[in-house]
Design a protein around this nucleic acid. Sequence first.
DNA 1: GAGTTGATCACT
DNA 2: GTGATCAACTCT
Length: 219
Amino acid sequence: MMPDSGKGGRAVPQAPAFEPVDRAFFTLGTLELARALLGLVLVHETPEGVTAGRIVEVEAYRGPEDRGAHSYGGRRTRRTEAMFGPPGIAYIYRIYGLYDCFDVVSAPEGKPEAILVRALEPVMGLDLMARRSGLGVVPGRPCRLTAGPGRLARALGITLAQYGMPLWQPPLYLTRAGARAVPAGEVARGPRVNIPYAGEAQAYPWRFWIRGHPCVSRG
DNA sequence: GAGTTGATCACT
DNA sequence: GTGATCAACTCT
Protein backbone atom coordinates (compact mmCIF):
# COMPACT_ATOMS: atom_id res chain seq x y z
CA MET A 1 0.00 0.00 0.00
CA MET A 2 2.98 2.20 0.27
CA PRO A 3 3.86 3.55 -3.13
CA ASP A 4 7.49 4.41 -3.01
CA SER A 5 6.89 7.77 -4.45
CA GLY A 6 10.36 9.15 -4.75
CA LYS A 7 12.34 9.37 -7.89
CA GLY A 8 11.82 5.71 -8.73
CA GLY A 9 11.00 4.48 -12.14
CA ARG A 10 7.67 6.15 -12.51
CA ALA A 11 6.80 7.15 -16.02
CA VAL A 12 6.65 10.79 -16.97
CA PRO A 13 5.62 12.38 -13.71
CA GLN A 14 4.27 15.64 -14.97
CA ALA A 15 4.91 18.42 -12.51
CA PRO A 16 1.81 19.24 -10.49
CA ALA A 17 0.22 22.64 -11.02
CA PHE A 18 0.63 23.31 -7.30
CA GLU A 19 2.70 21.80 -4.53
CA PRO A 20 0.69 19.06 -2.82
CA VAL A 21 0.55 18.74 0.96
CA ASP A 22 2.83 16.22 2.56
CA ARG A 23 1.49 12.75 3.19
CA ALA A 24 2.09 13.17 6.92
CA PHE A 25 -0.49 15.94 6.98
CA PHE A 26 -3.24 13.34 6.92
CA THR A 27 -2.21 11.76 10.22
CA LEU A 28 -3.50 14.59 12.41
CA GLY A 29 -6.53 12.68 13.61
CA THR A 30 -10.03 13.00 12.22
CA LEU A 31 -11.40 16.04 14.03
CA GLU A 32 -8.13 17.95 13.87
CA LEU A 33 -7.79 17.13 10.21
CA ALA A 34 -11.35 18.22 9.52
CA ARG A 35 -10.56 21.68 10.92
CA ALA A 36 -7.23 21.77 9.14
CA LEU A 37 -8.85 21.07 5.79
CA LEU A 38 -10.75 24.34 5.96
CA GLY A 39 -9.00 26.89 3.80
CA LEU A 40 -6.92 24.35 1.87
CA VAL A 41 -7.35 24.02 -1.88
CA LEU A 42 -8.52 20.83 -3.57
CA VAL A 43 -7.09 20.40 -7.07
CA HIS A 44 -8.05 18.01 -9.83
CA GLU A 45 -5.89 17.83 -12.93
CA THR A 46 -7.48 16.10 -15.89
CA PRO A 47 -6.92 16.07 -19.66
CA GLU A 48 -9.78 18.55 -19.90
CA GLY A 49 -8.00 21.01 -17.65
CA VAL A 50 -7.34 21.93 -14.05
CA THR A 51 -10.12 22.74 -11.60
CA ALA A 52 -9.57 23.80 -8.00
CA GLY A 53 -11.52 25.10 -5.04
CA ARG A 54 -10.92 26.23 -1.47
CA ILE A 55 -12.52 24.00 1.16
CA VAL A 56 -15.08 25.89 3.24
CA GLU A 57 -17.23 23.13 4.76
CA VAL A 58 -16.57 19.54 5.94
CA GLU A 59 -18.10 16.80 8.07
CA ALA A 60 -16.34 14.04 10.02
CA TYR A 61 -17.56 10.44 10.06
CA ARG A 62 -16.06 8.23 12.70
CA GLY A 63 -16.18 4.53 12.19
CA PRO A 64 -17.90 1.74 14.05
CA GLU A 65 -19.54 3.82 16.78
CA ASP A 66 -20.96 6.53 14.55
CA ARG A 67 -24.46 5.65 13.36
CA GLY A 68 -24.17 8.31 10.70
CA ALA A 69 -21.16 6.66 9.11
CA HIS A 70 -21.25 4.14 6.30
CA SER A 71 -18.77 2.14 8.36
CA TYR A 72 -21.12 1.97 11.37
CA GLY A 73 -20.76 -1.32 13.16
CA GLY A 74 -17.56 -1.98 11.29
CA ARG A 75 -19.40 -2.61 8.06
CA ARG A 76 -16.72 -3.41 5.54
CA THR A 77 -17.93 -3.96 2.00
CA ARG A 78 -16.72 -3.18 -1.45
CA ARG A 79 -18.27 0.25 -1.16
CA THR A 80 -16.71 1.15 2.22
CA GLU A 81 -13.39 -0.57 1.70
CA ALA A 82 -11.42 2.65 1.17
CA MET A 83 -12.49 3.95 4.59
CA PHE A 84 -10.40 1.17 6.10
CA GLY A 85 -7.37 2.17 4.08
CA PRO A 86 -4.52 4.53 5.00
CA PRO A 87 -5.18 8.19 5.84
CA GLY A 88 -5.09 10.54 2.91
CA ILE A 89 -6.75 8.43 0.25
CA ALA A 90 -10.10 9.27 -1.34
CA TYR A 91 -13.34 7.63 -0.25
CA ILE A 92 -15.97 8.26 -2.90
CA TYR A 93 -19.53 6.97 -3.00
CA ARG A 94 -22.60 7.40 -5.14
CA ILE A 95 -25.69 8.71 -3.46
CA TYR A 96 -29.31 8.62 -4.59
CA GLY A 97 -28.17 6.98 -7.78
CA LEU A 98 -27.11 10.36 -9.07
CA TYR A 99 -24.34 12.16 -7.30
CA ASP A 100 -20.85 11.22 -6.23
CA CYS A 101 -19.53 12.50 -2.92
CA PHE A 102 -15.88 12.97 -2.01
CA ASP A 103 -14.27 12.17 1.36
CA VAL A 104 -10.75 12.20 2.77
CA VAL A 105 -9.87 9.04 4.71
CA SER A 106 -8.62 10.29 8.06
CA ALA A 107 -7.62 7.52 10.47
CA PRO A 108 -4.88 4.90 10.59
CA GLU A 109 -5.35 1.88 8.37
CA GLY A 110 -8.06 -0.43 9.70
CA LYS A 111 -9.94 2.37 11.47
CA PRO A 112 -12.78 3.47 9.18
CA GLU A 113 -13.02 7.25 9.55
CA ALA A 114 -13.36 9.87 6.86
CA ILE A 115 -14.15 13.52 6.24
CA LEU A 116 -16.82 14.51 3.76
CA VAL A 117 -15.99 17.68 1.85
CA ARG A 118 -19.31 19.50 1.59
CA ALA A 119 -18.45 22.79 -0.09
CA LEU A 120 -15.71 24.66 -1.92
CA GLU A 121 -15.12 28.17 -3.08
CA PRO A 122 -14.19 27.90 -6.79
CA VAL A 123 -10.72 29.27 -7.49
CA MET A 124 -9.62 27.82 -10.83
CA GLY A 125 -11.21 26.38 -13.94
CA LEU A 126 -14.65 27.90 -13.47
CA ASP A 127 -15.54 27.55 -17.13
CA LEU A 128 -14.79 23.85 -17.05
CA MET A 129 -16.75 23.47 -13.81
CA ALA A 130 -19.74 25.14 -15.41
CA ARG A 131 -19.51 22.88 -18.45
CA ARG A 132 -19.33 19.77 -16.30
CA SER A 133 -22.32 20.97 -14.33
CA GLY A 134 -24.36 21.32 -17.47
CA LEU A 135 -24.44 25.09 -17.33
CA GLY A 136 -23.61 27.11 -20.39
CA VAL A 137 -21.76 29.81 -18.54
CA VAL A 138 -20.35 30.48 -15.10
CA PRO A 139 -23.31 31.57 -13.01
CA GLY A 140 -23.40 34.99 -11.38
CA ARG A 141 -22.98 33.23 -8.07
CA PRO A 142 -20.05 30.85 -8.71
CA CYS A 143 -20.68 29.18 -5.37
CA ARG A 144 -23.58 27.48 -7.08
CA LEU A 145 -21.01 25.27 -8.78
CA THR A 146 -19.47 23.92 -5.62
CA ALA A 147 -21.80 24.51 -2.64
CA GLY A 148 -22.87 20.98 -1.75
CA PRO A 149 -21.04 17.63 -1.89
CA GLY A 150 -22.70 16.44 -5.08
CA ARG A 151 -22.13 19.72 -6.81
CA LEU A 152 -18.44 20.03 -6.00
CA ALA A 153 -17.69 16.50 -7.15
CA ARG A 154 -19.48 17.17 -10.40
CA ALA A 155 -17.69 20.48 -10.91
CA LEU A 156 -14.25 19.01 -10.30
CA GLY A 157 -14.91 15.90 -12.36
CA ILE A 158 -14.58 13.62 -9.34
CA THR A 159 -16.25 10.24 -9.84
CA LEU A 160 -15.84 6.69 -8.63
CA ALA A 161 -12.91 6.50 -11.04
CA GLN A 162 -10.92 8.37 -8.38
CA TYR A 163 -11.88 5.92 -5.63
CA GLY A 164 -8.93 5.19 -3.34
CA MET A 165 -6.55 7.65 -4.95
CA PRO A 166 -3.85 9.20 -2.73
CA LEU A 167 -4.48 12.90 -2.13
CA TRP A 168 -0.86 13.95 -1.67
CA GLN A 169 0.00 13.72 -5.37
CA PRO A 170 -1.58 14.48 -8.75
CA PRO A 171 -4.02 14.15 -10.35
CA LEU A 172 -6.25 14.71 -7.32
CA TYR A 173 -4.64 16.42 -4.34
CA LEU A 174 -4.68 19.08 -1.66
CA THR A 175 -2.42 22.10 -1.60
CA ARG A 176 -1.71 25.12 0.54
CA ALA A 177 -0.97 27.17 -2.54
CA GLY A 178 -3.45 29.98 -2.72
CA ALA A 179 -4.91 28.83 0.57
CA ARG A 180 -5.68 31.35 3.23
CA ALA A 181 -5.16 30.48 6.86
CA VAL A 182 -8.50 30.38 8.63
CA PRO A 183 -8.37 32.07 12.05
CA ALA A 184 -9.84 29.97 14.85
CA GLY A 185 -12.53 32.58 15.36
CA GLU A 186 -13.83 31.99 11.86
CA VAL A 187 -14.30 28.28 12.29
CA ALA A 188 -17.88 27.38 13.10
CA ARG A 189 -18.92 23.97 14.37
CA GLY A 190 -22.25 22.19 14.63
CA PRO A 191 -24.29 19.05 13.96
CA ARG A 192 -24.03 17.29 10.62
CA VAL A 193 -26.52 17.60 7.83
CA ASN A 194 -29.04 15.01 6.60
CA ILE A 195 -28.47 11.98 8.78
CA PRO A 196 -31.92 11.63 10.39
CA TYR A 197 -31.42 7.89 10.86
CA ALA A 198 -28.32 8.36 13.00
CA GLY A 199 -29.97 8.53 16.43
CA GLU A 200 -27.86 10.31 19.01
CA ALA A 201 -25.03 10.67 16.53
CA GLN A 202 -27.18 13.20 14.73
CA ALA A 203 -26.27 15.74 17.38
CA TYR A 204 -22.52 15.24 17.37
CA PRO A 205 -20.90 18.56 16.43
CA TRP A 206 -18.73 17.14 13.69
CA ARG A 207 -19.53 19.60 10.94
CA PHE A 208 -17.02 22.43 10.48
CA TRP A 209 -17.34 25.42 8.21
CA ILE A 210 -16.00 28.92 7.66
CA ARG A 211 -18.44 31.23 9.37
CA GLY A 212 -20.34 33.45 7.05
CA HIS A 213 -18.71 32.16 3.89
CA PRO A 214 -21.09 32.44 0.92
CA CYS A 215 -20.18 29.03 -0.48
CA VAL A 216 -21.18 27.06 2.61
CA SER A 217 -24.04 24.79 1.64
CA ARG A 218 -26.26 25.80 4.56
CA GLY A 219 -26.39 28.20 7.46
C1' DG B 1 -41.52 17.27 -2.44
C1' DA B 2 -39.99 14.12 -6.30
C1' DG B 3 -36.45 11.97 -8.81
C1' DT B 4 -33.08 8.10 -9.56
C1' DT B 5 -30.11 3.86 -9.23
C1' DG B 6 -26.25 1.27 -6.86
C1' DA B 7 -25.45 -0.95 -2.57
C1' DT B 8 -27.03 -3.66 0.94
C1' DC B 9 -29.72 -6.93 3.28
C1' DA B 10 -33.13 -10.42 4.14
C1' DC B 11 -34.73 -13.78 2.06
C1' DT B 12 -34.95 -18.21 -1.15
C1' DG C 1 -29.72 -16.38 -7.01
C1' DT C 2 -34.24 -12.71 -6.16
C1' DG C 3 -36.60 -8.59 -4.59
C1' DA C 4 -37.28 -4.63 -1.18
C1' DT C 5 -35.52 -0.91 1.00
C1' DC C 6 -32.70 2.87 1.55
C1' DA C 7 -29.53 6.73 0.79
C1' DA C 8 -23.55 11.69 4.04
C1' DC C 9 -28.31 15.11 -2.38
C1' DT C 10 -30.16 18.43 -5.83
C1' DC C 11 -33.43 21.17 -8.12
C1' DT C 12 -38.26 22.87 -8.56
